[in-house]
């Protein structure tokens, strides 16, 4: 990739970065706080993300399409739902890190419903986050919210999955980069 392509790919970020620089000159307090927030977030990202992507790479290379389809594809039934739930719950890291994993799942033939379950679990029932939630907000708060979330995740997946037509499904499968 040459420099021109690189700039094009990162242009939104570069523009925002420039805007932030200008704001830092005009309103140093807000601009500099924003910069330090961004730096903190990026630092957090760099500390959490490497193992997720390494595991993702290993998953991509070692688990073949047939296995993935058998366990989480169409017709994998309750077992598929459970596996997707566990896969999401065993994760760490923010939801955006789940999207590349979802891509790999779809490429390997997971059903859209199971991918939705996986994303739902990743977003709210991650084990490390639950322990942290209990520590901060109390066991009762965490457990009640967990019970509600599990119901919610399944309902959301059912509802959103139902609205898709066959064509739309194929389009999603075909568009995975």
């Amino acid at each position: 990739m040459n420099v021109k392509q690189l700039i094009k790919r990162y242009r939104v970020f570069l523009i925002l970065f420039a805007v932030n620089l200008v704001i830092s000159l005009v309103m140093p307090e807000i601009g500099l706080t924003a910069f330090s927030n961004t730096a903190k977030n990026i630092k957090e990202m760099i500390s959490v993300i490497p193992p997720i992507f390494i595991l993702l790479g290993l998953l991509d290379v070692w688990v073949d399409r047939q296995t993935m389809m058998k366990y989480t594809g169409k017709g994998s039934g309750l077992k598929g739902v459970l596996i997707s739930f566990l896969l999401g719950s065993a994760a760490a890291g923010p939801l955006y890190a789940a999207f590349p994993v979802a891509t790999v799942m779809l490429k390997k033939g997971s059903s859209i419903f199971n991918v939705l379950i996986f994303l739902g679990a990743w977003s709210t029932t991650k084990v490390p986050l639950l322990t942290f939630e209990a520590a901060n907000l109390g066991m009762r708060f965490m457990l009640t919210r967990l019970a509600l979330s599990v119901i919610g995740i399944i309902l959301i997946a059912l509802f959103t999955d139902k609205t898709l037509s066959q064509d739309e499904r194929e389009e999603i499968y075909n568009s995975q980069a």
């Binding site: 790919r9 990162y10 939104v12 970020f13 925002l16 970065f17 932030n20 807000i30 601009g31 706080t33 924003a34 910069f35 330090s36 927030n37 961004t38 730096a39 977030n41 990026i42 990202m45 993300i49 992507f53 390494i54 993702l56 790479g57 290993l58 991509d60 290379v61 070692w62 955006y96 999207f99 590349p100 891509t103 790999v104 980069a177």
Partner: peptide, 28 residues
């Protein structure tokens, strides 16, 4: 596998950086 890991990461990096900077603003 490592190549794929890097490619998946680089694939979302531009948007990720954009998101980070927007959050930085919002929290400020």
């Amino acid at each position: 596998a490592l190549k794929k890991a890097w490619k998946s990461f680089e694939n979302i990096l531009p948007q990720l950086l954009t998101v980070m900077i927007i959050i930085g603003f919002a929290l400020a």
